[in-house]
Design a protein around this nucleic acid. Structure first.
Lengths: 212, 212
DNA sequence: AGGAAAACCTAAGACCATTAGGGAAGTCAA
DNA sequence: TTGACTTCCCTAATGGTCTTAGGTTTTCCT
């Protein structure tokens, strides 16, 4: 027992350090810019020497990768809990609630959003593991659209490839414009992001159940 | 005359060097990534020492700024000539032609697109001069939408702030998704960008002239 | 041809990521 | 408790980055 307890303690401390590194990395990216992350600055803030970080991550890209995965998990958790806690059975309203939670999270975590959806870090390619939760999110969206179709509120094409591409493009477009042109606006006041209900409405119009 | 001719020659050579620097910078960004631009690499390819570049640009950010301005001018020229050369009077078709030219140019000049629409270079803020042509483009869009309204094909709200925000967000969304997820696809095959006529159609639906 | 200006250089400072290798501390088994 | 092993963190060093300072060479006009 004591042997595993010791091991646990060690791995727990290690895990804590890893968390700290990621946390500091996010903070620095918030002030300096996502692509301007400096391992030296991270080490400095942790009271370490830069090479010590290599005990925890094999490279700077590995830190980006860990954050990519974490961000995907966090945003997924965010919209899933919003969805789960919604007090309604209206599938259309549920979609809006989930989309709102998703976009709100992105605005409140712009560093993650940049990492996840723009992928502009030179040389960074997310690993399959890090990418997995993103595919989960796509599947969630597909499931919800399918549920909306099953409820007779959308045309079956809405959950097809074109529907998904349209849905993600329209929401990503609002986010993209908001982040690039008015990053400091709130979710409510943002000139672009406040159009989220509008674009969903447009999507519903295009995939109205009676269509075709 | 010879005095001004000599001066011209000198300034012309200088201008040529500036062009070369910008050209090489774009090429390097295409292969290495936009944020990974290295002045040393630019100098190397030009057969110069890095400090010599400071004769032409006061900083790396100034190069980004020049490219930001140039990109805005180039994309503006691209959609304007497509618009001018279109052999139709149908305002809706003209809009599609201009939007297509715009998006196609962005796909063919992804480095510029990243610089112009995502603005993820840490520390880079475009100067007012560099930003001016971008505002011109917004004005062009507004003018065209207004022309479409005047032709009785759109509701007056289409050229309002919400209309513009919607229009730019929807096209930017397609571009954003295409660039991030499928950057190598052609304009015709791109899973996202090929939906451009679809989103324009949705826009027309929302701002149908009979609405309200 | 002389003088000014532009173009380019070297040297240096202050950063950066990363590798190599060593020492100190914690942990485990005997 | 002691010896061994692992983890953690360090210093030193390599080779890269942007940028400034200051000097030299080339170009050009009078």
């Amino acid at each position: 027992m004591s042997s595993t307890a010791g091991l646990d303690r060690r791995t727990r401390r290690r895990q804590e350090t890893i968390e700290e590194i990621l946390e500091v990395a996010i903070e620095l990216m918030e002030t300096e810019g996502v692509a301007a992350l400096s391992l030296s600055a991270v080490a400095r803030r942790l009271g370490m020497q830069p090479p010590s970080l290599y005990q925890y991550f094999p490279s700077k890209m590995a830190i980006y990768d860990a954050l990519f995965q974490r961000g995907n998990e966090l945003v997924r958790d965010a919209y899933r809990s919003a969805y789960a806690e919604a007090g309604t059975d209206d599938q259309l309203e549920l979609n809006l609630i989930a989309a709102t939670a998703f976009c709100r999270w992105c605005l409140e975590h712009q560093v993650y959003a940049q990492l996840l959806f723009w992928r502009t870090i030179p040389g960074f390619v997310p690993s399959p593991e890090a990418f997995a939760p993103a595919q989960e999110s796509i599947q969630d969206l597909r499931d919800w659209l399918q549920a909306t179709i099953d409820a007779g509120l959308l045309h079956p094409d809405a959950a097809g490839d074109e529907g998904i591409a349209l849905y993600t493009s329209m929401t990503a477009g609002l986010l993209s414009q908001q982040l690039a042109n008015e990053p400091d606006a709130s979710f409510e006041d943002g000139r672009f992001i406040r159009l989220l209900p509008v674009v969903l409405e447009m999507f519903y119009q295009r995939y109205a159940p009676t269509r075709g």
